[in-house]
Design a binder for these strands. Structure first.
Lengths: 236, 236
DNA sequence: GTCTATAATGAGATAGAC
DNA sequence: GTCTATCTCATTATAGAC
């Protein structure tokens, strides 16, 4: 991100210096606001249609800027994609770590059901909250997880916390193999994301209306995953 | 599919008539073989990179034909996609129906575990079998299920059998709501497909090699889904 | 049925005015 | 920082030769 070089201009008076700095600050502020609008628009477009089906022109139109502006804020379409994906990882990771720490502090309270709930709920809450950008991000993640080509770009951002949860599961099932634990955690994540990605299918099969939010599925989803993990690790 | 009009040519002798028909048959044969090569190539390309990322040129190159040939065999890229998706539905549906019928014929043998196994195993077998085109198709389905934009094109082909399984589950849990049954069946399908789509993630999390085939996950997958359904319908 | 050639459109990226 | 204009390249689809 470049800055307007105020230092190179000779300061002839305090006033002019003050004016220059104000102008610069305004430009930077406006630039960051525009940048956010571009990232938000990209997030919505990528979530709705996928990386390959979206053109930079569409994103520019959605953001209300011209093509050149998008080019200024990100060098390539791929970099734009990665920026969109990366900027929301921290809040999710933090929420999951806090819930895990709370469970572990409670000592005997550590259960499969509690672990699954702690891992799934932050995502469900963001996906169901009032921020449409977070909802778009949730849909984007649900879309790319089934595509190794794109998931490789965020894997390193999400796997550390997933491994911490795997360790917690291992304290409950010390004899379980790493492979089974990794498989079951992956199935849990897939189930979580399919709640966001496949709500249309659910309502199609049940011939009922789509419930309002992914959070409405929390109970059945957590029961499904926790019950599945326990049954599988109990040995059929 | 057009045919070369042999009737418009005057038949001067039995021999020439015979020759004409032989030539025609050969042309048709060659055309169908080419058509299959195009569909196979499209199947592999769509499975590997997704609909939007693949160009018709790539498909033509993969099939070893020119651009015009692909255009001759399917009017548009989208029609080609739909043809690829539709041509393998029947064998899968038949296999699932046969297994369901066998379970129901066994009377008391009907269990959640049995139903889940019957629904999941045909796909796992095709995805793990010797035919690379079936493996590509399995990957393609796993890719598009998380994308309503494409899944709508095959939904009507798969949902009838899914509804038959839902009915079977309902005989085991008469009090369960349609919505819960649809949710749990959707979670089961998502789990199944993620075994094909997320094997790289599983091996990444477990720091082990990727097992040879999706069928290797059959036991843990069926236990997970069956245990999850039972736990969820038991009410937490 | 297959191929070559091309039309028509849209893509990503960037240089330069403001 | 933003915008206009354009370069370069790839795309889908199709018309017409063989």
């Amino acid at each position: 991100m470049s800055r307007v070089p105020t230092q190179s201009k000779p300061a002839t008076s305090p006033e002019s210096d003050e004016t220059d700095r104000t102008v610069t600050d305004k430009r930077i502020l406006r630039g960051e606001a525009t940048r956010d609008r571009v990232l938000d628009a990209a997030e919505r477009c990528f979530a709705a249609d996928g990386f390959d089906a979206v053109s930079i022109r569409q994103i520019a139109a959605e953001a209300g800027v011209t093509l050149g502006v998008v080019g200024f804020h990100s060098k390539s379409k791929r970099e734009l994609f990665r920026t969109v994906l990366a900027r929301r990882v921290e809040p999710l990771n933090i929420a999951r770590r806090e819930r895990l720490a709370a469970l572990q502090a409670s000592g005997d309270g550590l259960t499969v059901h509690g672990l699954v709930d702690a891992y799934l709920t932050p995502y469900l809450e963001y996906a169901s909250g009032g921020d449409p950008q977070w909802r778009a991000y949730a849909e984007l993640i649900a879309r790319i997880v089934s595509d190794d080509r794109y998931y490789r770009e965020v894997r390193d951002l999400y796997d550390p916390v997933a491994l911490e949860y795997m360790d917690a599961f291992e304290t409950l099932y010390p004899n379980a193999s790493k492979k089974d634990l990794a498989t079951l955690l992956t199935l849990t994540v897939s189930s979580l994301l399919s709640i966001v990605a496949s709500r249309e299918r659910i309502s199609g099969l049940s011939h009922e209306e789509i419930p309002a939010t992914p959070l409405d599925y929390r109970a059945v989803l957590v029961d499904f995953c926790a019950g599945g993990i326990e049954r599988s690790l109990a040995g059929g």
